[in-house]
Design a protein around this nucleic acid. Structure first.
Lengths: 129, 129
DNA sequence: GCGTTAGTGATAATCGTTTTCATGTTACTC
DNA sequence: GAGTAACATGAAAACGATTATCACTAACGC
């Protein structure tokens, strides 16, 4: 997966910006933050690099309810899900082995192969309510 | 929920078009189908009515991987999930009581209130593989 | 029928994202 | 170091789904 990528200033800045945040953020948000932080970078470059990083499994992406894609550096390279606060965006990583097994079994039961699933949990965290 | 809606030819045609399909379809797809079927209807009207129907709980909407929203008339008015074929779009409704309970408990455990979740399963059905 | 009011639809506007393409950088070789 | 091929960048334009606008039409209650 980890196709070889050249190391550029922009890519490094992006990775750093991702590393310091625990929230899921949109490409536009990240772009603005980088600009504000004094790292001039093109919007297209942000999009491209985020896609690369996602393809290489170095960041997670989720699609918000409004259709926007949000990104976040995730600890484990393993498959996992998220519990995201709708207020502040605070995110807790989850593993759900039962769900994994359940969806597998379910696919098989209906003759489906190559089964994947998406599962995201949202709520209002203690601080925000 | 079911805000009172006036009955118009366009709304009726839309509901009928939805009723005859088992697949999730995009607003654009449905619009094209209606046009082809000889039911002139504006694209904006399709969008508006689909949103109304979704708000009234008469159709389900899911967001595809490319960000497009797809609609489908669903049998039960109850909360449920879907197993969707990535090839032909054939859809099977699922209930997952374990997942419901799991996400509830999880939210509580982390101090989250008003917990919701999205869960969609995709795969390749027997016919398509 | 009549008036009120929601619904319609062609079109323009929005907005996130992708593409284009000329230019700048990187990694590699000699 | 200099040369260079391939990749990366970024400003601007293109794209595509969706939403807003607004003049016009049709439902509904009387």
């Amino acid at each position: 997966m980890s196709t070889e990528r050249r190391s550029t200033r922009q890519r490094a800045a992006l990775i750093e910006a991702l590393g310091t945040s625990l929230r899921f953020r949109s490409a536009q948000e990240i772009h603005a933050d980088l600009r504000d932080a004094g790292s001039p970078i093109g919007l297209a470059t942000v999009y491209r690099n985020l896609q690369n990083l996602a393809a290489d499994g170095e960041v997670d992406q989720v699609r918000a309810e409004d259709g926007e894609v949000r990104y976040r550096a995730c600890g484990s390279g393993h498959h996992h899900h998220h519990l995201v606060c709708r207020g502040c965006g605070r995110t807790i990583e989850l593993t759900a082995p039962d769900v994994e097994r359940w969806s597998e079994a379910l696919g098989a039961e209906h003759g489906f192969t190559n089964v994947q699933h998406t599962l995201e949990v949202t709520g209002t965290c203690a601080r925000c309510s």
